[in-house]
Simulated assay, not measured.
Amino acid sequence: MDMRIEVVAIDSLMVRLFDRIDEANMPWILAANQRLRAAFGAHLIDLVPSYTTLMLQSDLAPSQARALIGAALQHLQPDASSSGRRHEIPVWYDPSVGPELPLLAARSGLDMAQVVRLHTEREYPVFALGFAPGFGFMGLVDERLASPRLSTPRKRVAAGSVGVAERQTAAYPAASPGGWNLIGRTPARLFDRARENYSLLQPGDRVRFVAVSRDEFVALGGDVEAQA
């Protein structure tokens, strides 16, 4: 690991720990997040962990912030106590709500049941939140499921839609435009203003998708309206 500190704005620095996305990064990112929060204390305005970096905003002068970052992350090691939560998220996998499910199967020479098995057999770390409130970027999916984003994004993707883009997977917290390959839908409430931190998922959490039947999906409050 070769840490670099980059300027983002007058009061913000980017702490870069890695240069490529890898699931093995997350324990280091979480350990750095924990140390920096403790070191900056009341001087911290915001700290945003992501795939390979942490964006830090503080009320300290840049030189002070750099020195504090260097001291805080000296001899950094992953810390088991800083690991995130584990979630099981139910998903109804069906072409009516996941219109790219047959496409992913055809591209990889699999049937739809095999696509579902590959998507559900892994536990995915949440790399980052972005695009929309509560939208967690997760990965990495099996290489056989990797698919480019749609050439023309949809104007409306239904809330709860579960999709794949390249080797990442995600679920849409609310209805919005989107260009991911949709393979199913979850009834889980991913963003809720009444919830602490609002988002169900946080960077460093781990997610296992669990296939459910249509009846189970409906019983959990899922919306069966077909995705156009």
Rank of each mutant, 00 (worst) to 15 (best):
P133W: 04
R16C: 12
L201P: 01
R149T: 06
R149D: 08
A24L: 05
A80P: 11
F40V: 05
R149V: 05
Y124H: 11
M26G: 01
A106M: 08
F191H: 10
M14W: 03
P27H: 05
R144P: 03
T53Y: 02
A188G: 06
A146N: 07
A174M: 15
A32M: 00
F209V: 08
T52P: 06
S147W: 07
P27C: 10
V15G: 08
S147C: 14
A188S: 14
L103P: 00
N25W: 08
L182K: 02
L44T: 01
N181C: 06
Y93L: 03
M138E: 03
R214C: 13
R37C: 14
V212S: 08
L104N: 09
N33R: 13
A174F: 13
G109L: 11
R37Q: 15
R35V: 00
G139K: 03
M1N: 02
V207T: 02
E216N: 07
R117T: 15
E123D: 13
L140V: 09
A80Q: 15
A174C: 12
L118M: 08
T186S: 15
R154D: 09
L73C: 10
L36F: 04
F191D: 08
D79W: 04
A194F: 14
P95D: 08
A31H: 03
T52D: 07
Y124K: 06
N197E: 15
A106C: 08
D223W: 12
S147N: 11
N33C: 09
H43S: 15
V7W: 12
R195Q: 11
A113K: 06
L54N: 02
D215T: 12
D111H: 10
R122N: 13
M1E: 06
T152V: 15
M112A: 12
Q227S: 03
P125K: 09
D46G: 01
L145Q: 00
I10N: 13
